[in-house]
Lab assay of single mutants.
Amino acid sequence: MLEGKVKWFNSEKGFGFIEVEGQDDVFVHFSAIQGEGFKTLEEGQAVSFEIVEGNRGPQAANVTKEA
């Protein structure tokens, strides 16, 4: 699992990017966010995740919000 911070997330469109120190930003789709209820992320929020190869390159999977 990697750790990063949410760079930005558009809850209307359901996607955004996660910043990872020393690496390129990683695309995140709302469907990759773990948990119940409305799936969104806040700018600057700490998250842990895995990287998988998507249709358009690397993207986040199994995203969990850090306490």
Results as ranks from 00 to 15, higher is better:
residue 1 M to S: 09
residue 1 M to R: 14
residue 3 E to D: 12
residue 3 E to L: 14
residue 3 E to F: 15
residue 4 G to R: 01
residue 4 G to A: 03
residue 4 G to L: 01
residue 5 K to F: 06
residue 5 K to N: 05
residue 5 K to R: 11
residue 5 K to H: 09
residue 6 V to C: 04
residue 6 V to N: 01
residue 7 K to W: 03
residue 7 K to I: 07
residue 7 K to M: 04
residue 7 K to C: 05
residue 7 K to N: 03
residue 7 K to A: 05
residue 7 K to H: 07
residue 8 W to C: 04
residue 8 W to D: 01
residue 8 W to K: 04
residue 8 W to E: 02
residue 9 F to P: 00
residue 9 F to M: 03
residue 10 N to G: 04
residue 10 N to V: 06
residue 11 S to C: 06
residue 11 S to P: 14
residue 11 S to Y: 14
residue 11 S to L: 12
residue 11 S to T: 13
residue 12 E to R: 15
residue 12 E to A: 13
residue 12 E to G: 10
residue 12 E to Y: 15
residue 12 E to P: 08
residue 13 K to V: 07
residue 14 G to C: 03
residue 14 G to N: 03
residue 14 G to P: 00
residue 14 G to S: 02
residue 15 F to G: 02
residue 15 F to L: 07
residue 16 G to A: 01
residue 16 G to Y: 01
residue 16 G to R: 00
residue 16 G to V: 01
residue 17 F to T: 03
residue 17 F to H: 04
residue 17 F to W: 07
residue 17 F to N: 02
residue 18 I to F: 03
residue 18 I to L: 10
residue 18 I to V: 05
residue 19 E to C: 06
residue 19 E to D: 07
residue 19 E to L: 14
residue 20 V to P: 03
residue 20 V to F: 07
residue 20 V to Q: 08
residue 20 V to G: 04
residue 20 V to W: 10
residue 22 G to W: 07
residue 24 D to H: 14
residue 24 D to Y: 12
residue 24 D to F: 10
residue 25 D to V: 06
residue 25 D to E: 06
residue 26 V to W: 03
residue 26 V to N: 01
residue 26 V to S: 03
residue 27 F to I: 03
residue 27 F to N: 02
residue 28 V to W: 02
residue 28 V to H: 00
residue 28 V to M: 05
residue 28 V to N: 00
residue 29 H to D: 03
residue 29 H to W: 06
residue 29 H to Y: 06
residue 30 F to E: 04
residue 30 F to P: 01
residue 31 S to H: 12
residue 31 S to R: 10
residue 31 S to A: 09
residue 32 A to K: 06
residue 32 A to V: 07
residue 32 A to W: 05
residue 33 I to G: 02
residue 33 I to N: 02
residue 34 Q to F: 11
residue 35 G to I: 09
residue 35 G to N: 09
residue 35 G to Y: 08
residue 35 G to R: 04
residue 36 E to H: 10
residue 36 E to C: 06
residue 37 G to L: 05
residue 37 G to R: 06
residue 37 G to K: 07
residue 38 F to G: 07
residue 39 K to T: 06
residue 39 K to Y: 06
residue 40 T to P: 03
residue 40 T to F: 12
residue 40 T to L: 08
residue 41 L to N: 01
residue 41 L to H: 01
residue 41 L to D: 01
residue 41 L to Y: 02
residue 42 E to K: 13
residue 43 E to H: 15
residue 43 E to Q: 14
residue 43 E to T: 14
residue 43 E to R: 15
residue 44 G to H: 09
residue 44 G to F: 07
residue 44 G to E: 04
residue 44 G to D: 06
residue 45 Q to R: 07
residue 45 Q to A: 11
residue 45 Q to M: 12
residue 45 Q to E: 10
residue 46 A to M: 11
residue 46 A to Y: 15
residue 47 V to Q: 00
residue 48 S to D: 04
residue 48 S to F: 14
residue 49 F to G: 02
residue 49 F to D: 00
residue 51 I to P: 03
residue 51 I to C: 05
residue 51 I to R: 07
residue 51 I to T: 06
residue 51 I to N: 03
residue 51 I to M: 10
residue 52 V to T: 10
residue 52 V to Q: 10
residue 53 E to C: 06
residue 53 E to S: 12
residue 53 E to W: 14
residue 54 G to V: 07
residue 54 G to Y: 10
residue 54 G to H: 08
residue 54 G to N: 08
residue 55 N to H: 13
residue 55 N to M: 13
residue 55 N to L: 14
residue 57 G to N: 05
residue 57 G to D: 03
residue 58 P to Q: 08
residue 58 P to I: 11
residue 58 P to W: 12
residue 59 Q to H: 10
residue 59 Q to E: 11
residue 59 Q to F: 10
residue 60 A to S: 05
residue 60 A to I: 02
residue 61 A to I: 11
residue 61 A to H: 12
residue 62 N to P: 02
residue 63 V to N: 01
residue 63 V to T: 03
residue 63 V to L: 10
residue 63 V to S: 01
residue 63 V to I: 07
residue 63 V to G: 01
residue 64 T to G: 08
residue 64 T to A: 12
residue 64 T to V: 13
residue 65 K to Q: 11
residue 65 K to E: 07
residue 65 K to S: 10
residue 66 E to A: 15
residue 66 E to V: 15
residue 66 E to K: 15
residue 67 A to F: 12
